[in-house]
Every structure is written in C-alpha cells, then in structure tokens.
Simulated assay, not measured.
Amino acid sequence: MTLWFRSYWDEADLWFYFEVDGDGWVSRQVELLGPAGTPITAASLEEWQHAQVMGRLSQYAGTYGSTAEIPIQEWEGYDPHPLTRTEFEAVWTRARRHLEELR
C-alpha cells in the first residue's frame, strides 16, 4: 500500500514530502525550503536507479536530488502529516516544473 505524507524539519526550515511503498521505501521525495517553499528536491527512486544504470546519475542528482536511502521504519524524530495522493501530486508537479526550469 502506498502512503503519502509530509514532515517538517524546523532547524533547516524544510518541508519533506514523501511517497512511500508498502515496504517503507521512499519512491518519490520532494523538499521545499523556506517560507516561499522553494523546491530543492523532486526525486524518484525509479528514475534515480535508471540514471545510475545509464551512467547519468550525477546529472540526475544535480537536477532532482535523491530519495531517502533507508526505509521509514528506521527513521527517528520525524512527525508525519498524512497527505492524499492528489495533494502529493500537486506538490510533485510544481517542484518538478521548477527544477526543470533551472536546468
């Protein structure tokens, strides 16, 4: 079962948005910085893995960033706020558009 949620890290004024698969791995991740919510990450694990196989990982990561490297069961100190798929998709779309414009 796929879950969507967000979590705030106040030390960095950063919102994390996650799409997580049934095993607890992040399949897509968005990071929004500061009061303006400026996108700094909008990464897909599937795309990241494909870029790695194709030898284009540094280009992908330079544009979109990366997803969390451990499953959520191993995370500490986060306070998840549930999202709907529609809410996540709206943030994802806006973040991707912003990061692609910066290329």
Rank of each mutant, 00 (worst) to 15 (best):
S27K: 09
G37A: 05
G22D: 09
E47N: 00
E74C: 00
A12R: 12
Y64H: 12
A51W: 06
R96N: 00
G24T: 08
E76F: 06
T67A: 03
E100L: 11
D23M: 13
D10P: 10
Q49F: 10
W15C: 07
E100Q: 04
S44D: 02
R97W: 13
P82I: 05
V26P: 01
T86V: 14
G37V: 01
R56P: 05
R28L: 04
Q52D: 15
G37S: 09
R96C: 05
R96S: 04
E100C: 05
D13M: 13
T2V: 14
H81M: 13
A90S: 01
V26M: 10
G37Y: 06
Q52I: 08
M54N: 10
A12W: 05
L45S: 11
A51M: 01
E74G: 09
Y78K: 09
A51T: 10
S58F: 12
T41M: 03
A36I: 03
G77L: 11
S27P: 06
L83S: 03
R103T: 15
V30M: 00
A90K: 08
V20G: 00
L57N: 07
E47W: 00
M1P: 02
Q49C: 10
R56C: 08
R6D: 08
T41P: 08
G24A: 09
Y64A: 02
P82E: 11
M54E: 15
L14D: 07
R56M: 12
Y17T: 03
E74L: 13
A90Q: 15
G65Y: 07
P71T: 07
G22T: 02
S58K: 06
A90R: 15
G62F: 09
A36P: 06
E19W: 02
I72L: 15
M54Y: 09
L102E: 07
T67E: 04
T41L: 07
W48M: 11
L14W: 00
H50S: 11
W4V: 05
A43M: 02
W75P: 05
G65M: 04
G34H: 13
T67H: 01
W25N: 06
A43W: 00
V30G: 01
G37W: 07
F5Y: 12
L3N: 12
R94L: 03
D10A: 15
Q29F: 10
